[in-house]
C-alpha cells in the first residue's frame, strides 16, 4: 500500500464547471446523418441501394446486440434467437393470419423481449458468467433453430415466402423491388433504434446498467437492483434485433430456420459492433458500413473470378471468409474497434 506522492494541496473543484455530457451531441449527429442520408437511394444505382439497405439491417441487428453485450456487458452469442423471433413472428402473422407487417414487427419485438427476459432470468438466477453465459445464449438460439426446423407450426425447414401483392402498399410494407421506400423505412427504423439507445444510455436505467456491468457488487451496494436492470437491457436489446429480423423478411420476402436462427446470424449481429467498436454508440453503424459492401464485392468476385481461380465461379463462402479474417484482425490489432480507437486517440476518452 503506497500512498500517493502528490501533495494533498488544492483538493476542491468548487466553481469548476461540470463536464458536458455527450448525449446531445450524439442526438444532433444522428439527426444530421439521417437528413443527409435521405436522398441516398435516389442517387445510388439500384444495386448499390440494396447494399445500403443491407448495411442498415446489419446496423440494426448490431445496435441491439451492442446494447446487451457492449453496454450491458453480457456477451451474447445467440442474438439469432431474437432476429429469428422477429422474422418468424412477422412472417407467421402475415402468411398465416394476414396481419400487417407493422403489427408483425411489434409482435416480434414483444415476443423477443419476453424470450430474452426469460433466458436472462435463468442465466442470472443461476449465475452463469463468461463462457457459460455465451454458451447458454448460443444454445437457446440453436434450440429455436432445431425447433423451427422440425415444427409444422412454422412450416418446418421450408419456412415462409411472403406473398407478392399486385400493387405497392405501405400498410403491407411492400413496394417495387427497386423502390427507395425500403431504404427509407430501414433508415427510419435504424435512426429510431439509435435514438432509443442514446436516450436509454442517458437514462437512470442505462446508467445503472453500465454500473452493473463495471462491478455488479458495487452497483448492488449503492442500491441498484442489478437483476432488474440487466433484464430490462436484455429485453430492449432483443426487441431492437427483432425489428431487424422482421424487416429482413419484408425486404427479402423469404425466411427459413437457418436464415433466421442460424449461428451465422448471431455472428452478423456481433461483427459490426466488434469492427466498429463495442460499447460505443456509433460502433455498430460504422461496422455495418464496412461489412455491408464487402458482401457485394465478394459476390461480384465469385461471379467473375480472376484468372487462375475460374473453378471458384458460382461458389459461395468467400464473404464469410473475409468476415472471419476481418474479425480476427480487428480483435488482435484494434480490440476497441475502428470508432473506439479513433475516439480514444482523438478525444480524451
Amino acid at each position: 500500500m503506497t500512498a500517493t506522492s502528490a501533495p494533498p494541496a488544492p483538493e476542491t473543484a468548487a466553481g469548476r464547471p461540470l463536464p458536458r455530457l455527450p448525449w446531445n451531441r450524439h442526438l444532433i449527429a444522428i439527426a444530421v446523418l439521417a437528413v443527409l442520408l435521405v436522398p441516398l437511394p435516389l442517387i445510388l444505382p439500384p444495386a448499390q441501394a440494396s447494399v445500403a439497405v443491407r448495411v442498415l439491417i446489419f446496423a440494426l441487428m448490431s445496435i441491439g446486440w451492442n446494447m446487451m453485450s457492449g453496454f450491458g456487458g453480457m456477451f451474447s452469442f445467440g442474438h439469432a434467437a431474437y432476429f429469428g423471433i422477429g422474422a418468424y413472428a412477422s412472417a407467421w402473422l402475415l402468411v398465416e393470419h394476414r396481419v400487417s407487417p407493422w403489427i408483425g414487427i411489434l409482435a416480434g419485438m414483444v415476443v423477443a423481449a419476453a424470450f430474452a427476459a426469460l433466458i436472462g432470468f435463468l442465466a442470472l438466477r443461476y449465475k452463469l458468467r463468461g463462457a457459460y453465459f455465451a454458451l447458454a445464449t448460443f444454445a437457446f438460439a440453436e434450440m429455436l433453430r432445431l425447433w423451427a426446423t422440425n415444427s409444422d407450426f412454422v412450416n418446418r425447414a421450408v419456412g415462409y415466402h411472403v406473398p407478392l401483392r399486385p400493387e405497392a402498399s405501405w400498410w403491407w410494407l411492400q413496394f417495387e423491388p427497386s423502390s427507395p421506400n425500403y431504404f427509407w423505412v430501414a433508415l427510419a427504423l435504424t435512426v429510431v433504434a439509435l435514438v432509443v439507445s442514446v436516450l436509454y444510455l442517458r437514462s437512470r436505467a442505462g446508467q445503472f446498467t453500465k454500473a452493473a456491468r463495471d462491478d455488479e457488487d458495487a452497483a448492488a451496494a449503492v442500491g441498484i437492483p442489478v437483476m432488474r436492470y440487466k433484464l430490462l437491457t436484455m429485453a430492449l436489446s432483443a426487441a431492437i434485433t427483432a425489428v431487424a429480423g422482421a424487416f429482413y423478411v419484408q425486404y427479402f420476402l423469404f425466411i427459413d430456420p437457418d436464415l433466421a436462427f442460424g449461428s451465422s446470424v448471431s455472428i452478423q449481429a456481433i461483427l459490426p459492433a466488434v469492427i466498429g467498436g463495442v460499447a460505443t454508440v456509433w460502433g455498430p453503424v460504422i461496422g455495418a458500413v464496412v461489412m455491408g459492401p464487402l458482401n457485394d464485392v465478394t459476390a461480384t468476385m465469385l461471379r467473375n473470378p480472376p484468372a487462375g481461380l475460374e473453378f471458384l465461379q458460382g461458389r459461395s463462402g468467400l464473404d464469410v471468409i473475409v468476415y472471419g479474417t476481418l474479425l480476427i484482425i480487428i480483435v488482435l490489432v484494434l480490440p476497441k474497434g475502428i470508432y473506439g480507437t479513433i475516439r480514444q486517440r482523438w478525444f480524451r476518452r
Binding site: 463536464p19 453500465k210 456491468r213 463495471d214 462491478d215 457488487d217 458495487a218 452497483a219
Partner: peptide, 10 residues
C-alpha cells in the same frame, strides 16, 4: 471497487 469505465464524478 469503482465503476472502472467511469470518471469519479460519474
Amino acid at each position: 471497487r469503482p465503476f472502472y469505465s467511469m470518471t469519479v464524478l460519474e
